[in-house]
Design a protein around this nucleic acid. Structure first.
Length: 491
RNA sequence: CGGGGUGUAGCGCAGCCCGGUUAGCGCGCGUCGUUCGGGACGACGAGGCCGGAGGUUCGAAUCCUCUCACCCCGACCA
C-alpha cells in the first residue's frame, strides 16, 4: 500500500479525500463548500465533456449559453420547481460596493439595491423557457435541441469534493417538442446516452429506471436516472433525464400552432450530468494505492519513466524514450515522457500509480541494450518485459483490456452486492453489513418509502424499466406489490 | 440548523491540564556531495505576530471571556 494513504477498509471517506488530494484532482478553496479543480482533475472532466459533447452532437443537439442570473420572479413561476430549489439558492441583491465611511474597509452600497433580486442559477429551466417563448410559434420551430455547459450553484449544507459542492460544473440539455411522445422519446434517448457513456467510457455499469415521486426532479412529470454502485456499497445517482410534460410551457406561456392549426403548449425535457461523475469514477475503480482510471478517460494513458545512473545513460535512455513516445503519439495514444531529473524513478512509479495512469513503460540501460521495455498495468499491477518492437500492439491491447477489466470488475462487484430481499430484518441487516443494491417489493406509497428512509437511511434509487412481473408483498408494510424496486443508501 | 472536533512553519502534528530562557518534531523546501531497475542517504540551511480581540499575571501558545474560520457526523440535496 502507498505511503500516507488510508485504505478503503480503514476509513472510506478519508481514502476518498486522500485520492482527490494526492492525485492532484482538486482542493478546498477559500470559499466554503467550493473546490478548486486542479489541472489533472480538470483534464478528466474535459475528457468527459469531449465524450459527452460528441454524443450530444451525434443525437442532433447544439450548444448554447444562457445567463447565470435568473430574475427571482421567473423562478417562482413553476410551483413545484421553486419549492424544490428555494432552500438552496444564492441571491444577488446589490450591484455595487463602496468604501466604508468609517474607513474600516469595503461595504455593500445600500443605495445599489437591485430592483429585483437575481438568483444564481441552481438549474436553468426557468430562464431557458422564458427565452424559448420567443423562439417558438409554429410546429415548424420544433424541436429545439439545446445543451448548455455551465456552472450552477446550490447552497448545500454539507459538501464533499466532486460529489456535492456548492458550485459545480455540469451540462444541462433543454429540449422542446411538439408532442408528448416525441418528448418522452427524447427523455429515454438521453438516458441511454448517459448509460452508454457511463458503461463504455467510464467503465461503470449502471441501472436504468424511474425515480419515485419523492426523488423526482422539482417540476418534472417523470425523472429517469442511471444509478451506479460504489465500492462502499452506497449508490450514486450518475445522471438524470426528466420528462417535464407541459409544466414549464404553461408556466412561461410557450405555445405553438400545430400542423392542424391548434394552439398547444410545448412539451419539454431536460437532462444533466455533472462533475459528480469524477467522484463516481474515483469510487468505482480506485484501490488502496490510489486512483485507477479507465483508459478512455485518462488524461495520460501511458507514462514513460526513464531509468539511469549518470548523464551518459540519461542521454542514451531518453533518446530511446523519445522515440517510443513519438511512435505512441502517432498512434493517437496520450503519452507522457517524464524525463525530469529532479525525481527518482521509484518516486515517479508511485506518483503515476496514485494518479491512475493505466500503463507505465519503464526503460533503462538494460532495456536499450536488449531492445526491451518493462510495462506495468495499473488495474492488475502486473508487469511484463516485452520486445520494444511490440510496444504499439501491446499498448493497444492493454488499453482495451484495462478498459474491459475495469468494467467487468465493477459489474461483478455490483452483481455480488445486489440482493433480492423479502424480509424486513434481513433488509436492515444487509444495509448495516456493507450495503449494496436491495431489490425488494414496495407497496408504492410515499409514506412507506419515507418510513423506510427514516428507519434505515435507505431510499428507493429507482424503479427498473425492465423488471419482471412478479407480484409480491411490500418488504415493509406487507401490502401487495407489483414488482421489485431498488433500494440503497446513497450519496 | 443540531451534535462533536480542530486552529502552532507550505503540509501533518507535539507542547496547553500543571504559565517561566531562544516554541519543538516529521514530511516538504534550498545548497552541496554520494546515489538512481519501486517513495535514496548525509551534511549544512531557510522558514512562526502559536486563528483574531480583550482580560488575568512580573511573565501567556499555555488560564478566563468573547469572536472568526475550517473539518467530521446528522437533517437537506446531483
Amino acid at each position: 500500500m502507498a505511503k500516507g494513504f488510508s485504505t478503503r477498509e480503514e476509513n472510506y471517506s478519508k481514502w476518498y479525500n486522500d485520492i482527490v488530494q494526492k492525485a492532484g484532482l482538486a482542493e478546498n478553496s477559500a470559499v466554503r463548500g467550493c473546490m478548486v479543480i486542479k489541472p489533472y482533475g480538470y483534464a478528466i472532466w474535459e475528457k468527459m465533456q469531449a465524450g459527452l459533447d460528441k454524443m450530444f452532437k451525434d443525437t442532433g443537439h447544439s450548444n448554447a449559453y444562457f445567463p447565470i442570473f435568473i430574475p427571482k420572479s421567473f423562478f417562482s413561476r413553476e410551483a413545484a420547481h421553486v419549492e424544490g430549489f428555494a432552500k438552496e439558492c444564492a441571491v444577488v441583491t446589490h450591484y455595487r460596493l463602496k468604501n466604508d465611511p468609517d474607513g474600516s474597509g469595503i461595504i455593500v452600497d445600500p443605495d445599489a439595491k437591485l430592483e429585483e433580486e437575481l438568483i444564481i442559477r441552481p438549474t436553468s429551466e426557468t430562464i431557458i423557457w422564458d427565452t424559448y417563448r420567443n423562439w417558438i410559434q409554429s410546429y415548424r420551430d420544433l424541436p429545439i435541441l439545446v445543451n448548455q455547459w455551465a456552472n450552477v450553484v446550490r447552497w448545500e449544507m454539507r459538501t464533499r469534493m466532486f460529489l456535492r459542492t456548492a458550485e459545480f460544473l455540469w451540462q444541462e440539455g433543454h429540449t422542446a417538442h411538439a408532442t408528448r411522445e416525441e418528448a418522452m422519446e427524447e427523455t429515454y434517448r438521453m438516458l441511454d446516452v448517459y448509460a452508454d457513456f457511463a458503461e463504455n467510457h467510464m467503465a461503470i455499469p449502471v441501472l436504468k429506471g424511474v425515480k419515485s415521486e419523492n426523488e423526482r426532479f422539482a417540476g418534472a412529470e417523470e425523472t429517469f436516472c442511471i444509478e451506479a454502485l460504489m465500492q462502499d456499497g452506497k449508490a450514486l445517482q450518475a445522471g438524470t433525464s426528466h420528462f417535464l410534460g407541459q409544466n414549464f410551457a404553461r408556466a412561461f406561456d410557450v405555445k405553438f400552432t400545430s400542423r392542424e392549426g391548434r394552439l398547444e403548449y410545448v412539451w419539454a425535457t431536460s437532462w444533466g450530468v455533472s462533475t459528480r461523475l469524477v467522484g463516481a469514477l474515483i469510487m468505482a475503480h480506485s484501490d488502496d494505492r490510489g486512483l485507477v482510471l479507465p483508459p478512455r478517460l485518462a488524461p495520460i494513458q501511458v507514462v514513460i519513466v526513464p531509468i539511469y545512473k549518470n548523464g551518459e545513460e540519461y542521454q542514451k535512455v531518453c533518446a530511446k524514450a523519445r522515440e517510443i513516445r513519438d511512435a505512441l503519439q502517432r498512434m493517437g495514444v496520450l503519452v507522457k515522457l517524464d524525463d525530469r531529473d529532479t525525481y527518482k524513478p521509484g518516486w515517479k512509479f508511485n506518483e503515476y500509480e496514485f494518479k491512475g495512469v493505466p500503463i507505465r513503460v519503464a526503460i533503462g540501460p538494460r532495456d536499450v541494450d536488449n531492445d526491451t521495455l518493462e510495462l506495468a498495468r495499473r488495474d492488475t499491477l502486473a508487469k511484463e518485459v516485452i520486445p520494444a518492437g511490440q510496444l504499439g500492439q501491446v499498448v493497444e491491447a492493454w488499453l482495451a483490456s484495462i478498459q474491459e477489466t475495469l468494467y467487468k470488475r465493477a459489474l461483478s462487484f455490483r452483481e455480488n452486492n445486489t440482493r433480492e430481499v423479502d424480509n424486513w430484518e434481513e433488509f436492515k441487516q444487509i444495509l448495516d453489513a456493507g450495503g449494496g443494491f436491495i431489490m425488494a417489493h414496495w407497496d408504492g406509497t410515499a409514506e412507506t418509502e419515507q418510513k423506510i428512509k427514516e428507519e434505515t437511511r435507505a431510499t428507493i434509487r429507482l424503479i427498473p424499466f425492465r423488471r419482471k412481473e412478479e407480484p409480491g408483498r411490500c418488504v415493509y408494510s406487507g401490502k401487495p406489490s407489483a414488482g421489485r424496486v431498488v433500494f440503497a443508501r446513497a450519496y
